[in-house]
Simulated scan of single mutants.
Amino acid sequence: MTVFQLLLIAVIAIGAIFALRLLSGDRSLAVKRMLAILFAVCAVLAILFPQLLTWVANLFGIGRGADLLLYVFVLASLVFALISVRTRARQDARVTELARSVALMEARLSERQDEGR
């Protein structure tokens, strides 16, 4: 095992630990944690046994393991982008709803103050 492989495994282990600690407060917490652990295990296996990655790539009709990694990365990036867009849209809708509520409450308070004068 090379120093670079040890460094990569350490970085992945630290990333997985942070992911497990930071992924809280969501309904799908268990799924996120399982995916984080699965990612870490797959990454460590790919680092320790690069020929295994090429073997898996060949099962899918892909010539090299590096190509498989690229394809998986592109797909993961697209999924992440879609999830981010949906999350941002939900947050924007929530902020709009809250702003409307605050504006209506301020208008009601203003009306009551005007009536009291």
Rank of each mutant, 00 (worst) to 15 (best):
Gly61Ala: 03
Ile37Asn: 01
Leu48Met: 11
Trp55Cys: 03
Val74Ile: 15
Leu78Lys: 06
Ile37Gln: 03
Leu68Ser: 02
Ala76Leu: 14
Cys42Gln: 07
Leu53Met: 09
Ile62His: 00
Ile37Tyr: 01
Val56Lys: 01
Leu38Gly: 09
Ile37Gly: 02
Phe80Cys: 11
Phe49Ile: 04
Ile37Met: 04
Ile47Cys: 11
Ala36Glu: 01
Cys42Phe: 12
Leu75Phe: 14
Ile62Asp: 03
Pro50Thr: 03
Ala43Asp: 05
Cys42Met: 13
Leu82Asp: 11
Leu75Asn: 05
Phe39Ala: 06
Ser77Gln: 12
Val56Gln: 08
Ala43Pro: 00
Trp55Gln: 08
Leu59Asn: 08
Phe80Gln: 13
Leu82Val: 10
Gly61Asp: 04
Leu82Trp: 11
Leu82Asn: 14
Leu69Asp: 02
Leu59Ala: 07
Arg64Met: 10
Leu45Ile: 15
Arg64Glu: 14
Leu78Ile: 10
Phe60Ser: 09
Val74Gly: 04
Leu53Lys: 00
Ala76Pro: 00
Ala89Thr: 12
Thr87Glu: 15
Leu52Pro: 02
Leu52Gly: 13
Gln51Arg: 08
Trp55Tyr: 11
Arg86Trp: 10
Phe73Ile: 14
Thr54Gly: 03
Val79Tyr: 08
Leu53Ser: 14
Leu45His: 14
Val74His: 01
Phe73Lys: 09
Arg88Glu: 11
Ala40Met: 04
Gly65Arg: 02
Gly63Arg: 14
Val85Pro: 02
Leu68Gly: 05
Leu48Asn: 05
Leu75Ala: 13
Leu53Asp: 02
Phe60Tyr: 08
Val44Lys: 00
Leu48Ser: 07
Asn58Gln: 15
Val74Ser: 05
Gly63Pro: 05
Val79His: 11
Leu38Gln: 08
Leu69Ala: 13
Val41Lys: 04
Gly65Glu: 04
Phe39Glu: 00
Asp67Leu: 10
Pro50Val: 00
Phe39His: 00
Leu52Asn: 05
Leu52Glu: 06
Leu45Asn: 09
Leu68Ala: 06
Asn58Ala: 13
Leu52Trp: 12
Val44Ile: 15
Phe80Ser: 10
